[in-house]
Simulated scan of single mutants.
Amino acid sequence: MSDEEPLTDHEERLWRALLRVTVALPRSLDDDLLRSTGLTLTEYVVLMNLSEAENRELRMTDLASATALSASRITRVVDALQNRGQVVKRRYEGDARGNVATLTPEGLRRVQDAYPVHLASARKRVVDLLDGRSVAAMARQFEAVADKLD
């Protein structure tokens, strides 16, 4: 038997809803993007992070961390994006063991074109369903949870 205190009814409802959201939301966002833009959610997040980075480039280890992907998964995604001319991967000059991913003009165009679709999906599937007065507090709380998971 666990020494942990059982969840209250409200905590249990929150926990179960959160589990449902963590499974269903990425799938729905991915479907919306893929259907409208041809990009997967993972590809969009990689391109978005590169578009926001200094010089539109990141070391692969930093990109993996920013996207919460494993080293092998980020390599596969970046290789696929490179094959489509959206990213260039090269050796990192400061460390011969590492690589850097750089967003190409084509990749920037793709992420800019996909942004309105992703924004509409985020609004429709989450933001517009929330009480606007609680969004700032929820953001702080989920950031605290995310920080502990990182």
Score class of each variant (00 low, 15 high):
82 Q>W: 02
8 T>H: 03
15 W>S: 14
28 S>F: 10
133 R>M: 01
119 L>Y: 08
32 D>S: 14
149 L>C: 10
22 T>P: 08
38 G>M: 03
26 P>Q: 08
4 E>V: 08
124 K>P: 07
34 L>K: 00
117 V>K: 01
58 L>N: 03
128 D>L: 14
5 E>F: 08
21 V>R: 03
11 E>L: 04
98 G>S: 10
141 Q>L: 15
56 R>S: 04
129 L>T: 13
78 V>R: 01
133 R>I: 02
111 V>E: 02
94 G>P: 07
27 R>T: 15
12 E>I: 06
79 D>A: 12
104 T>W: 09
14 L>R: 12
12 E>S: 14
9 D>H: 12
59 R>Q: 05
120 A>R: 12
7 L>C: 06
103 L>A: 01
75 T>E: 12
31 D>R: 13
77 V>H: 00
79 D>I: 11
89 K>T: 13
8 T>R: 07
28 S>G: 13
95 D>V: 04
135 V>Q: 06
68 A>V: 11
5 E>V: 12
18 L>N: 10
126 V>L: 15
100 V>M: 01
66 A>T: 02
123 R>H: 15
41 L>V: 00
145 V>T: 08
110 R>I: 04
85 G>N: 05
69 L>Y: 04
136 A>C: 11
45 V>I: 07
60 M>W: 00
40 T>G: 01
136 A>D: 15
46 V>K: 02
35 R>Y: 14
3 D>A: 12
74 I>G: 02
19 L>V: 12
79 D>K: 07
13 R>T: 11
74 I>F: 02
7 L>P: 03
137 A>C: 10
1 M>Q: 10
8 T>G: 03
8 T>V: 07
6 P>V: 08
116 P>E: 02
138 M>I: 14
98 G>H: 08
21 V>C: 11
138 M>R: 12
81 L>I: 07
93 E>H: 10
102 T>R: 08
36 S>G: 06
70 S>Q: 08
143 E>K: 14
20 R>C: 14
81 L>S: 02
132 G>V: 08
17 A>Q: 08
147 D>G: 13
2 S>K: 08
42 T>G: 04
59 R>I: 04
79 D>M: 10
70 S>L: 11
73 R>T: 13
87 V>N: 05
138 M>F: 11
18 L>F: 14
87 V>H: 05
98 G>Y: 08
